[in-house]
Design a protein around this nucleic acid. Structure first.
Lengths: 254, 254
DNA sequence: AATGAGCGTTGCATATGATGCAACACCACG
DNA sequence: CGTGGTGTTGCATCATATGCAACGCTCATT
């Protein structure tokens, strides 16, 4: 809609691939160097882009700060967090919280199992949308049309032999998930990892987030993990109740 | 430099404070609603902004993805990470990695303590720049003029009675840190938390990052923590060697 | 039901502001 | 001491962002 802004923003994903110099940016944008320079300068002033010693540009620090603040303002996350921690303390495995947005599913919180300390950095990473339990839960609740459209658009990479192979199978799986109110991923993403998940709903009954528990089958078998399902669903329900409870997001700040 | 882009980008920090509707955005930008609409639409197309059901805008998912990719492209981080993990396994406390950029110091990696008492910090979060050990290390290496200018510009909040109170004391502390090649923060940010840190240098000898170990004094006393200093410094040196790696050219810094 | 207030949205005329050009400055390299 | 590759600046042109006013919609009020 706004050409100038559009061009400027196009620089960001470009730099996400790695640092680039002025000429490269100008070329990839298809604009004059001087134009690219002005855009980069503006991005720079806002801290979204940083210029390293060799004069090349890369993504800047404010990006983190923004993503940071954004995630902290998500009220589902805030409400859910203590419950996720409690669940984690009880059963020990990794617990995830995810939301759906603009054809992507992404983790917005994670509590690590007591295993080798993993990176915080997976938060924000797009989820394997065709196989993850949380993805199934979130997509299963989309309106029919949107669900169908999305399924058509997706790729179905065969991470493992048990990955969901195509749109038809995917839609069928979503129907099941929708029906039963919980979801699994049994080795569909990584051969040895199983997940079980349950939905968190808003006051209107729509699914606003999904949580899951993941564990490698060297630790617990799929059956043992499934035995935890009632506990997981109960946790999700508690969060749902608190989230849809009153109306704590009635007003922002002023 | 580019007014349109400038305005568009100004929307991001504004939304970081919390969701806002079109009118609010237009007001705070001082532009017509229709203008704000176009800017928001452009931001939306790039996924930086998301429109929730109530039509209000908030920061979008791509922001995470970008921050994600950005941090993954930092080579210091990549090289340092395994060493940080190893150090954490050896001593158990929380380990941080931070860089300086544009008058801010921010964490780019963190390995959690194995102890139940954890420190609140987040990757991407700006560090308390006047007191943190990593901040001292990074700032101590700035050119004289820049260091002085920055010190003048800073606020010196008294987080605790041991916080550094003013620019003069700060510059003095930086001189010490510069001299000795390591830094501490003994209860300067939170009364009960101590940190020790060491610098990581590039091939030219300039400090490119800083690492620290933090522990609450209910777990280890400051003296016990300081006893770990040689270990921390050694780790930092190993990272430095690997990072400034290939060309074993002796640096020209004295 | 009817009315109106408050919000987001659209098309359009205007001139602001973004653009590409060409010339310049700088550095590294031969 | 040139020469080719950078990044940078000032400027004339016109593309493009802007504000306006009118419209459509939803919701609350009567």
């Amino acid at each position: 809609m706004s050409q100038t802004v559009d061009r400027a923003l196009s620089i960001l994903p470009l730099l996400a691939e790695g640092p680039a110099d002025l000429g490269q940016v100008a070329d990839r944008l298809g604009v004059h160097k001087s134009t690219a320079l002005r855009l980069l300068r503006t991005l720079h002033e806002h801290g979204l882009v940083y210029r390293q010693q060799d004069q090349r540009y890369r993504l800047g620090a404010r990006l983190f700060a923004l993503a940071q603040e954004a995630v902290e303002n998500l009220d589902v996350r805030e409400i859910a967090h203590p419950h996720l921690v409690a669940l984690n303390e009880q059963i020990g495995h990794t617990v995830h919280l995810a939301v759906y947005e603009e054809s992507e599913v992404l983790y917005i919180d994670k509590v690590e199992s007591r295993y080798p300390v993993r990176m915080y950095s997976r938060i924000g990473k797009p989820v394997a949308i065709t196989v993850a339990a949380v993805a199934k839960l979130l997509l299963a609740d989309l309106p029919e049309a949107e669900r169908r459209a999305l399924a058509e658009k997706l790729d179905f990479p065969m991470y493992t032999s048990r990955s969901i192979p195509n749109a038809a199978a995917f839609l069928k799986e979503l129907a099941t998930v929708r029906e039963q109110g919980w979801a699994t991923d049994l080795g569909g993403h990584e051969e040895s990892i199983n997940c079980i998940g349950a939905p968190i709903r808003g006051a209107d009954g729509r699914v606003v987030a999904a949580m899951s528990v993941s564990a490698p089958n060297v630790v617990v078998t799929a059956e043992e993990l499934l035995a935890l399902l009632p506990l997981v669903r109960r946790t999700a329900d508690v969060i749902t109740r608190e989230y849809s409870g009153q109306a704590p997001r009635q007003e922002g700040r002023a």
